[in-house]
Each structure stands twice: as C-alpha cells, then as structure tokens.
C-alpha cells in the first residue's frame, strides 16, 4: 500500500471480505505466524475465558483446551521451511478456532517436507481406523516405547486429540512446491456432550 486512493479502497474491500469470511465460517480466533509458548498460553487462556463467559460445559472446555495445546505445540515444534537447500525449523503456521452451534473446530496449517508425507499419512490413517479402545492401546504402546524427541515431543499428540475428541482427524496435504506440502489438520469437538 503506497497511500494512493485505489490501493486504500482495495485494502478496505479486502478487510470487509475478510471480516465476512470470518463471520461465515464462525471464526473465533485466527493467527498466522510463529507459534511460541507465549502464544500458546495467550490463546488458550483467552479461549478459556471466553468459554467460561459463554457457560460452555466443563467437559467441552477441557477438550478444547487439550486439543488447542497439542495442535499449537505441533506447529511450534514441527513446522519448517527450506531455503537454499537448508531446512529451518521456524514453528510458523496458521491457527483457527471456529465455533458454531454444535461444535468447535480447531485447525492448523503448516509446511512440512515431502519426506514426512508417507509416515504422517500412515500414522493419521492408523489413528482414524481405531475405536476408543484401540486408541487407548496405541497410546499406551507409544508412551512406553516412544522417546521424548529433541523437539520435546512425545509422538502422542495426534493420538491424544483423537482420543479426547472421539472424532476422526480431518487432514490434507496440499502441494506447495517440489519439496514442500501444506499440511492442514482439523479437529472437531462436539458441544453439549455432557
């Protein structure tokens, strides 16, 4: 934007359409950037306050908090990009919290290297194929056998989300370039399930 009238007009139109899209999709919170521990704390605390004010059930509040933490930490720990053949972990991504009458949806999007595609797809498909009991078994197996990675992850995030929400993980990998994919993950938490 260089201050010219037409640019400003375009920008204002963009703001209005952005506002309308957010309303249409019931977006409560949207963020793009680096996901740090401070951001995780700020977003979860803000959402807790809003849910408390909205008299959301305790069980839904807890599930939303759980899933938000795991999703935000996933991006913070794993998001990466490549520059001049070097991989940088930058923890950047997009985060959206949406809420309608029936459910909360928590979505993250971040870049992942294509080399992770098969392993991630396999893991996510396995989780989605399991029922509650199967997820419990997988969780126990992973917590026993898994080591805490140097990123501080326990490899339990996706399993935990599926276990806590009771819903399948919705995900997609969108092509960005030869090396990278944009990984989108959406978790759904039903409301009024007390």
């Amino acid at each position: 934007m260089d201050g010219k009238g037409t640019d400003i007009k375009e920008f204002l139109e963009f703001i209005y359409s952005f506002y309308k899209s957010m309303k249409e999709h019931h977006v409560q919170l949207v963020y793009e950037g680096e996901i740090t521990h401070q951001i995780t704390k700020a977003f979860t605390s803000l959402t807790e306050t809003n849910m408390e004010l909205g008299e959301e059930s305790q069980s839904t509040q807890k599930k939303v908090f759980h899933v938000m933490v795991e999703c935000l930490q996933n991006v913070g720990k794993h998001a990466e990009y490549m520059e001049n053949t070097e991989i940088h972990r930058d923890g950047r991504g997009i985060f959206l919290l949406c809420k309608n009458e029936h459910e909360y949806t928590i979505t993250t999007g971040n870049m992942v290297n294509k080399s992770k595609f098969s392993e991630m797809t396999e893991g996510l498909e396995k989780i989605n194929s399991l029922d509650k009991e199967g997820l419990k078994q997988l969780y126990k197996q992973q917590i026993k056998e898994g080591r805490l990675s140097n990123k501080g992850g326990a490899g339990l995030g996706f399993i935990d989300i599926a276990k806590k929400t009771g819903n399948p993980l919705i995900y997609n990998f969108l092509p960005i370039n030869d090396d990278y994919l944009f990984f989108v993950l959406t978790s759904v938490i039903s409301r009024y399930n007390d």
Binding site: H66, Q73, I143, L148, G152, G153, A154, L156, G157, D160
Partner: peptide, 12 residues
C-alpha cells in the same frame, strides 16, 4: 488437573 502429552511421558 491438566497435563499435555509431552508431560505425560515425563509422568510415566
């Protein structure tokens, strides 16, 4: 009252 998955490993 709450722990994340990374903590769950340390609790184990």
């Amino acid at each position: 009252v709450y722990f994340n998955t990374a903590s769950s490993k340390m609790l184990l």
